[in-house]
Design a protein around this nucleic acid. Sequence first.
DNA 1: TTGACATATTCCTAAATAGGCATATATTTC
DNA 2: GAAATATATGCCTATTTAGGAATATGTCAA
Lengths: 125, 125
Amino acid sequence: MTRSAHPADVFTAIAEPRRREVIAVLSDGRDHAVNEIVVRMKMAQPAVSKHLGALRKAGVVTVVKRGQHRMYRLKAESLKPVHDWVKFFERYWTHQVDQIKQRAERKAFERITRSVDPPNKKKEE
Amino acid sequence: MTRSAHPADVFTAIAEPRRREVIAVLSDGRDHAVNEIVVRMKMAQPAVSKHLGALRKAGVVTVVKRGQHRMYRLKAESLKPVHDWVKFFERYWTHQVDQIKQRAERKAFERITRSVDPPNKKKEE
DNA sequence: TTGACATATTCCTAAATAGGCATATATTTC
DNA sequence: GAAATATATGCCTATTTAGGAATATGTCAA
């Protein structure tokens, strides 16, 4: 098995660097035709179309037909889950870092010395 | 080709749901033995070890030998690039959304009508 | 209709990879 | 040393997937 994520998972969608490039192009919040993205990214058109397809499946972009073009637009709210997820860890690189680390180390040490090493258990928790 | 990202890319590392579970277990900032993660995640030990290996390569966790255990710890700063990347889009789901959207739409419309296409359309989605 | 242009889709291949299973490699305890 | 425990690694398979090339589809213009 490979990636067991839902194929349309946002985390998976943004894992691709090229896809983040596409998002960067769309990050002005405006509509963009495929061809424009192709030119800006210096990438083959089918490849771009495929990435856009993946992003669309993940709900990261939306499409609208306009004449013979298809206008893609970033749906930024779709990135909110990522933001929420990573925001939790924000505090670890802010000023409280030292406090947190020290407390963690102390607790971890206690845990280890008191419960893990004694050779009388198999599986617990 | 598959994922063209550096294998140790943080975005790729966190794309795996199971890996985010591992991170969740480590999210208290303390040391955790592999076996503990195995038990908590109800996952086979080799699988867990592999995920930990991937996370380590991506710099998301660190290891320390302690007796016959290997204690893994989250290196939260490694997630900062993700935070920084997604933070840019934060403003799109905050109160200014309407402003931004409206301006974007207006500009896009101008762009289209002046350079790409006469303003007639067939199908929209 | 014909042709030009924009985009998507299909087929292909090479690479990545999650997880199962078996096994190797410590490390501790007896 | 031997057994038990903790962890990593190797092999295997099924699945995913990025991108190339060719082609299909759709739309507009003359």
